[in-house]
Design a protein around this nucleic acid. Structure first.
Lengths: 342, 342
DNA sequence: GCTCCTTTTTGAAACGTTTTAATCGGACCG
DNA sequence: CGGTCCGATTAAAACGTTTCAAAAAGGAGC
């Protein structure tokens, strides 16, 4: 079997020549098929198939002045939270007949910057982003130059763009109120660095719940790791397991589920029973949280809705002259499971 | 604070006018800065900053006849296996100074088709894809029309393209040999539908190991679910737990880690001790496998290398005249953990 | 002041599409 | 039979780059 690769992709002009019509007619077949006589259309379509014609999107969008695509710059493609958000965006994009360009900054500001640069040059219809630093002036610059941009999972007031997020302070409060309800009086907050906005907010919510309940400030301890990863959760687990049981917190509230899973594993390994000796609350309610051997109590965020809402906003900004920027805040919800219910 | 959005993005022509030079000079500043006098360059750069000039990639690639991007069509963005593969590709793309377009077919042939159509029209330099159906003639058509294409995680011989995969038959063999070594004589293979090539291969490997050891065929049972998901693993767990212990398999080999995690959870819930009453082997060795409360024994695939190798092949095809198609097969490796080691 | 270089700048063409206004060939009507 | 109208088709312009040949501008040497 000989497979022959076609040399150069055929253009509208080639199709026209092959079909014996003008180039404008070919374009009509493509864009307003009803305006062209059936016989002609047939001839042209045959020529297109013959030559393996594929529309050139670059030329198309150069002419049109806009592309048919949207982009989402994810903070960490390895975290199921963000892939779920992406899925919500994907659905919206599919509905609007746009392709979705998924990029991963992997929490690196430099990679994020090059992605943004490429996307802006590509003239995508809009950019969705969960930024490494939501206050970066680079974001304002992009919006100012005219590309609609929406921040996902962080709120930024007073910017030249919309943002969509979940109330992390409330989420933190829900988690700790639940633990207090269950009778815990020594609790650890296990988080990534407080420099991450989401972490800081969740911690603030936790402290709010704690002080509102009138509990002594010192009994809510902070265990700050370096990142929001399983590994980070494991090392926090080691630290907790090392504390004599009389002083050890009886419950841990983790800044996300990856940490919670790492903590759960390490605690189990160290012989701590969950939830009897250590109750655990995670955050995000990713699928793996429910799938853990001891299913994790977690704070659920409406991930797909988050993505969809962000996409709707960016599309509105792209097409609606009267668009005005807004900040959408979703409400999280506590999902109680075995890791706190014993 | 009044934020003014710039009206229409400035073109090279506008910059030229603002700087009082010809359009060709502006282009030279962009592409061959050494050919232009320092003073002129300065003037032009100033004008660009002033006007917020952003290169138009559509025009650029129309002119160049090729884009600066690569694409990977993932089968399931929610499965960490594929995001790891994507990360390997991303590194290769970064090295080649290309942007990477990530798409998710979500295992739907229709979505895959529209993604492919868009990518071809976009004239990406190459397409990497883990296809819903590796034998689809649509893939051949794309390759024939000239877009370099590489199949990831499946081997397709005799096609007009390269493919990169891991030896799934060997992987299946390794898993079951390990279980036989550990003394198991009744084993269940828990898989998605055998219509999925990867699943069929792993099952074949399992049976190979079983018959090689001279064990009775009937004692390797097949539990076929509908998909490779956690939920599917849970329902398999229910089925297994329902079997009277005298006849119940003492070990399960799962077609991937998601199934294994679901199975682990359901088994634990049903009161089966892992690995004493039920040993479990997963496949892929995703991060969450090691992070499970009972860390999972799993068959590790070199995920990032898989992605990188695929990207290297597609880049070679795109730039090297003398490229010839090849099939690269990586070797999997068993990682034994608590879920079989008791 | 002239020629002969080199360095810098310019003008025009090309990439593949879409769109608009113009043309063509009939058919219909009076 | 001339005029009008209509549907189908065409020709030409435009989108924003890059490139290449050619022109212009300087400088050096005589």
């Amino acid at each position: 079997m000989v497979i022959e690769r076609q040399q150069l992709s055929a253009s509208v002009k080639d199709v026209a020549a092959a079909a014996g019509v003008s180039l404008g007619t070919v374009s009509n077949v493509l864009n307003r098929p009803d305006r062209v006589a059936a016989a002609t259309r047939e001839k042209v379509e045959h020529a297109m198939a013959e030559l393996g014609f594929v529309r050139n999107e670059s030329a198309r969008s150069l002419r049109a002045g806009r592309t048919r695509s949207l982009a989402y710059v994810m903070l960490d493609a390895g975290n199921p939270f963000f892939t779920d958000v992406a899925q919500g965006i994907e659905h919206a994009a599919e509905g609007a007949e746009l392709s979705l360009f998924l990029c991963n900054s992997d929490s690196r500001a430099t990679r994020e910057a090059t992605h943004l640069e490429h996307l802006e040059q590509q003239r995508v219809q809009g950019i969705l982003i969960t930024p490494v630093d939501p206050d970066s002036p680079a974001l304002d610059a992009i919006a100012r130059r005219g590309t609609p941009l929406v921040i996902v999972d962080r709120i930024r007031k007073g910017g030249a763009f919309c943002s969509v997020a979940v109330d992390d302070v409330l989420g933190g409060r829900l988690a700790v109120e639940h633990l207090i309800d269950r009778g815990h009086r020594r609790v650890a907050f296990v988080g990534g660095p407080l420099s991450i906005g989401q972490v800081a907010d969740r911690y603030e919510g936790a402290r709010l719940a704690w002080s509102t309940a009138g509990l002594p400030e010192d009994d809510l301890t902070l265990v700050a790791g370096e990142s929001l990863t399983v590994a980070s959760g494991r090392s926090a687990g080691e630290r907790l397991a090392g504390i004599p049981s009389a002083r050890r917190p009886t419950a841990a509230f983790c800044a996300n589920d990856l940490i919670a899973l790492g903590l759960l594993q390490q605690a189990t390994t160290a012989g701590l029973r969950v939830p009897e000796q250590l109750a655990i609350v995670g955050y995000d309610d990713i699928e793996f949280a429910a799938a853990a051997a001891v299913p994790l109590t977690s704070v659920r965020q409406p991930r797909q809705e988050l993505g969809r809402a962000a996409a709707d906003l960016v599309l509105d900004e792209a097409s609606n002259e009267a668009h005005h920027h807004q900040q959408v805040v979703f409400t999280p919800e506590l999902v109680a499971r075995a890791s706190t219910l014993g």
